[in-house]
């Protein structure tokens, strides 16, 4: 008598994948949020600071852009366990993803600040706006417009890159699909479903961003 250790794909497995998709969304949105704030600060420092500040920040952030994310994740994960402060996979994944996001957003933000014409800023200052008012009412809206599509691009790439967090044990969409595959052996179908989930997360946002970009350029 053969014992079947595999079980068929069931409707509730779709729910399992859906929950995992929410976890993908959760970790990537957290990382995008934290990373964008820090990235914007770094970007502002790089465009407004002196050469030395710019060089140092850029050199440090460049490391995170020049080392594969998967290596960063493994390195951080093994480091915190060496240090004796093991963190939940969600937390360490969020930290690494946030730093990675910040490194990418910093460049975008720098471009945004530099996209604001110097004459515009001088005009606002000579109208009596303080530096921070100029930043808030002139640089922010004008710069944001210039780099919003690139920022969306970064955010979408973070959603996709969050798939790598599975290597340190966080059960997000791709990891969940692997778990299901191990149980059901329905590789092709499950991978297709996982792919559709990613597509459904990413495609509408990328199209919306293209649409917004077109409208702004008119």
């Amino acid at each position: 008598m053969a014992i079947n250790v595999f079980s068929e794909l069931q409707p509730k497995d779709l729910l399992f994948l859906g929950e995992a998709a929410l976890r993908t969304l959760e970790i990537s949105l957290t990382a995008i949020g934290i990373g964008s704030v820090f990235g914007a600060i770094f970007g502002w420092m790089m465009s407004e600071g002196n050469r030395i500040v710019t060089f140092i920040i850029n050199a440090i952030l460049d490391i995170f852009r020049s080392v594969p994310l998967i290596i960063q994740l493994i390195l951080f994960d093994s480091f915190i366990s060496i240090a004796g402060y093991p963190l939940p996979a969600f937390v360490s994944g969020t930290i690494v993803l946030s730093v990675y996001t910040a490194a990418l957003v910093a460049n975008v933000a720098r471009g945004g600040v530099e996209a604001v014409p110097a004459s515009l800023r001088r005009a606002s200052r000579s109208l009596g706006l303080s530096y921070w008012q100029d930043l808030r009412y002139i640089v922010w809206p004008v710069g944001l417009r210039a780099v919003f599509p690139s920022w969306i691009g970064v955010a979408l790439s973070v959603v996709k890159d969050s798939a790598l967090v599975s290597v340190i044990g966080y059960v997000e969409l791709l990891k969940a699909s692997q778990i299901l595959i191990t149980r059901t052996q329905d590789t092709f179908v499950i991978l297709t479903i996982a792919g559709l989930f990613y597509f459904a997360l990413s495609y509408p946002i990328s199209k919306a961003s293209e649409y917004i970009e077109r409208r702004w350029n008119q």
């Binding site: 996709k160 890159d161 969050s162 590789t187 092709f188 990613y198």
Partner: peptide
């Protein structure tokens, strides 16, 4: 452009393998 590279790799490796 809209799916993770890792997913694409898994698809070519395990999806086609299946």
């Amino acid at each position: 452009r809209n799916t993770p590279a890792l997913f694409q790799l898994f698809f070519f490796k395990f999806g086609l393998g299946a």
